[in-house]
Design a protein around this nucleic acid. Structure first.
Length: 242
DNA sequence: GCATTAACCACCG
DNA sequence: CGGTGGTTAATGC
C-alpha cells in the first residue's frame, strides 16, 4: 500500500466538479446557513485515493473529518506483523472521524481505500467551529454518533448470536444503512476476502454464505461485486430466531 | 460436524 | 500478471 497523492493546498479540489456540487449532496451541508456553508467550502478539499491507499493512519493527528463521496473505505487496525482487524466499511455518503476530531485525539484506527475513492476532507478547525456555531450541524453530529453506536452494538450482537450466513447478511445490510450512508447504492464493489475481514469469517465461509443468500434471491454475486436484491429481507436474516 | 487454513488452479481485468 | 474466487485436503475446535 502506498500513500496517495497528497499535496493539500488551500485551493479547491483538483477533481472535476466544484466543491459546492459535491457537498451539496449532503443533508448536513444543506442544513447549514450560507455563511457556514462558506466556511466549509473555503477550507475543505476533495482527494482521490487509489484502491489500497491509506487515507489516514492510526496514531496520526486527526487533521480532517472525512466524507466518502465515491468508492469504499474501511476502518481497521494493523499490527507490525501485518495482521489486521477490520471494524467497519464506509460506503458513499458516510462521514467518519468525529470522535478523534472532537476529542483532539490521535486517530484510533487506520482508514484504507478498498476501491478508488473520492474523499471529502473537512479540516478539524472547521468541524470544531461548526459544532460551536451551528445548531443544525450539532444535531447532525449527535444523530450520526447515535446511529453508529447502534450499529456497533448490533455488530457485537450479530457476532455472538448469529450463524455465519446471518452475520454475512447483517454485515451487508449495515453497509447499506440509509441513515449513515444515504448515497450508497445497492451494488457493493467488495471482494469476498474483504467481506471476510469485515465479518471475521474465512473467505471460503463468506463464499458459502453468499451462495446461500443468492439462492434465497437476497443478493446477486458477480466478480468483485455484490448486488443486494432485497434489502428489507436481508436485514431480517437471522433475527427472527432471536 | 463444522469451520478454518493452506494450497492449487482457473478466470477476470 | 496480479487480484479474485472456486475447490479440495488437512487440521482444529
Amino acid at each position: 500500500m502506498q500513500q496517495a497523492t497528497s499535496v493539500p493546498p488551500f485551493s479547491a479540489s483538483q477533481s472535476q466538479r466544484p466543491l459546492v456540487a459535491l457537498f451539496d449532496e449532503y443533508a448536513w451541508f444543506q442544513a447549514l446557513s450560507t455563511e457556514h456553508q462558506q466556511w466549509v467550502l473555503a477550507a475543505s478539499r476533495a482527494e482521490v485515493f487509489e484502491g489500497g491507499a491509506w487515507v489516514a493512519r492510526r496514531h496520526a493527528l486527526s487533521e480532517y473529518w472525512l466524507g466518502v463521496h465515491e468508492g469504499l473505505l474501511k476502518l481497521a487496525i494493523y499490527n507490525e506483523s501485518g495482521r489486521g482487524c477490520t471494524f467497519s466499511g464506509v460506503p458513499p455518503g458516510g462521514w467518519i472521524g468525529e470522535g478523534s476530531v472532537i476529542k483532539h485525539e490521535l486517530r484510533k484506527y487506520d482508514v484504507v481505500a478498498l476501491q478508488p475513492s473520492l474523499v471529502l476532507m473537512v479540516p478539524t478547525a472547521t468541524f470544531q467551529a461548526l459544532l460551536a456555531a451551528s445548531l443544525p450541524f450539532t444535531q447532525f453530529v449527535i444523530h450520526q454518533l447515535n446511529e453508529r453506536m447502534g450499529e456497533f452494538i448490533a455488530s457485537i450482537q450479530n457476532h455472538r448470536l448469529l450463524d455465519a450466513d446471518a452475520r454475512v447478511a447483517q454485515s451487508l445490510a449495515q453497509l447499506l444503512n440509509p441513515a449513515l450512508y444515504p448515497n450508497a447504492g445497492l451494488t457493493l464493489t467488495l471482494s469476498q476476502e474483504e467481506l471476510g475481514f469485515l465479518t471475521g469469517l474465512s473467505r471460503q465461509r463468506v463464499n458459502q454464505a453468499l451462495q446461500a443468500l443468492a439462492d434465497a434471491a437476497l443478493v446477486r454475486v458477480s466478480y468483485n461485486q455484490i448486488h443486494v436484491l432485497d434489502l428489507p429481507r436481508l436485514r431480517q436474516v437471522g433475527l427472527d430466531e432471536l
